[in-house]
Write a protein that binds this DNA or RNA. Structure first.
Lengths: 336, 336
DNA sequence: CTGAAAGCGCTTACAG
DNA sequence: CTGAAAGCGCTTACAG
């Protein structure tokens, strides 16, 4: 049988209330008593029962991370960018004394609020690309239920709730200016740029505006759709080369797209960056090991994870929180 | 205020006990009553309080996943192989009605059993490479505490508890036979092969035995140490080329090592597979996109995740469970 | 500083 | 098939 606080109380010769206080480091309890109780608890391998404690406190000290994938992609292929955020989220949670519940969701799923309604979690972190329109309704529902949540993604006036993201516009702008400095004169952009992909759209807008700023509007060959995958990048680049002729710089909305573009270039015997410069976005671990190593834009995933967690905890504590926009950083390697 | 089962009972004109029964689909309750209660619960957005329910049932329907990283590696660099397992683990959990708590641990941490002792989880999944000797003591402790856990990794008589893994010996054997069939005659193996890395050692033993079987013992140039990273692979391959001369086939203990080897070859102007064939292990997502695409060995992460979860649940339910060894599959691409 | 008591919201034997 | 009651193991006002 697992020990309870009553057992510890008995062994320590104090009341159960005192045990509870001692183990929560209450200042109400005499230091000597506290130490003695803690020592016995440790010896007995006693741990406070979280279910009982949470039930009484009406708080779970747990955060639920809802990762939703684009349903169009393969099950096993999680966007590596989210993965790197997972590490910093778990660490930020444990530093703040919260446990982390992780769940993969389909946009179709009936996920809304389950966790918080059932008191398994005090709040939710929503992590995913995809068509925000699809789940706008669900977010609305979260707000109605007064669920605490933060969302990773572009600020959007149509979406209530707090969102935290990197400055995608600035990233797209910076990487384009970098290509301009390197003397590139014919640009193509590969990646969805519609309202269903607000991050990609912001990167695209930064791209366009950078060209504009340098009076290079005419240097823009066009934009081709692609979801964030290698396959999509390969397909779009192949199409581009066939139908529109060759640019001398391709700005990609994600690293995986850029990897697909590099493969399409290889297919055609094109050399990077001699023939065409290619830049990605995300700085996923692989981007360092492509041939040649890829120039890309880094989102600070460590900071992002920490912000997501700290802002959610503020929300849980009833504090005021506003949207956050973090700077993006250019990583120059050899594809540009 | 959040609704309780008493509120639902009041609205439905039944007792609270009946509400509880209706919502857990008990056959004890009249179908009509059950449906009515469920309808009202849904309308009121009522969810059973998990803390109360778990406390009463003495079961949390939650599994804790402890990912421990090799402390020698960078924080943000999680082994991609584990990542792909994370997806199938979360899915298997939710299919079985369990929630998943995720935590990153350092081998130094004082992690043992916390989750189960505090009733936050019914059992633990241990996922990590690294030196098993380091945490043998902790595993011993888990066993003493009668904690339910399954471990991903090679079976080891020194480690109590259930372990589940892929057949690393068979994988190393198969990939070596494949290289022999392709006519390779000078082999090197890159990857730690000591008892601190039992998976790598098993792959190495498979490699050696395959050579032996084909009377190619003399074709073995040697084994070089490397942890699972790209950098380690690059470093070892560079050393190999400098000091031992050129093999015509390199078997790597992980895909990341192989990626590092490819880079070292490029540094020296060596062409793969013309000069040297290179094979990896794990079939991580990137391996498909290296130049050239990599021949590797796949561990079935989907099945692995499912096995880990289903075996742990059996353990939780008091059923008998034994170690599992799953087959590895050769993925032939263009580096061999 | 300490203890006795109430109560968090459920599930489930017990009685009918 | 249904209800009244006990109790899971805590935390925290309340009283001293």
């Amino acid at each position: 049988m697992k020990a309870t606080s009553f057992d510890i109380a008995h062994l320590a010769g104090v009341s159960q209330s005192t045990v509870s206080r001692a183990l929560s480091n209450s200042t109400l309890v005499n230091e000597e008593t506290r130490l003695r109780v803690q020592k016995i608890a440790k010896e007995m391998n006693y741990k406070v029962d979280k279910n009982a404690s949470n039930l009484r406190k009406q708080r779970s000290s747990t955060i639920a991370l809802l990762l939703f994938e684009d349903p169009s992609t393969d099950d096993s292929q999680i966007n590596p960018f989210f993965i790197s955020m997972l590490g910093s989220i778990t660490k930020a949670c444990s530093a703040a004394g919260f446990d982390l519940l992780v769940s993969f969701q389909n946009l179709q799923d009936d996920w809304h609020a389950e966790y918080e309604d059932s008191h398994k979690a005090d709040g939710l972190i929503l992590l995913g690309y995809g068509d925000y329109l699809d789940y706008q309704q669900k977010i609305q529902h979260l707000v109605q239920q007064k669920t605490h949540f933060v969302r990773w993604g572009a600020h959007d006036p149509n979406h209530p709730g707090i969102s935290i993201s990197c400055n995608n516009y600035q990233g797209g702008f910076a990487v384009t200016e970098h290509l301009i400095e390197r003397g590139r004169t014919r640009f193509a952009f590969i990646g969805d740029a519609g309202s269903q992909a607000p991050e990609f759209m912001a990167r695209f807008n930064g791209h366009i505006d950078a060209l504009s700023k340098h009076n290079l509007d005419d240097a823009f060959m066009g934009q081709l759709d692609a979801i964030f995958t290698e396959e999509a990048g390969h397909e779009s680049a192949t199409l581009l080369f066939e139908e529109d002729g060759l640019p001398d710089a391709i700005v990609c909305a994600s690293d995986l797209i850029a990897i697909g573009v590099l493969r399409a270039m290889r297919d055609q015997g094109l050399v990077c960056p001699t023939d065409i410069a290619v830049v990605g976005y995300d700085n996923i671990p692989v981007s360092e090991y492509t041939t040649p190593p890829m120039t890309t834009v880094q989102q600070n995933t460590k900071l992002a994870g920490e912000m997501l967690v700290s802002n959610l905890i503020k929300l849980i504590n009833g504090e005021q929180v506003s949207d956050q926009l973090m700077p993006a950083e250019l990583i120059i390697r050899s594809t540009s």
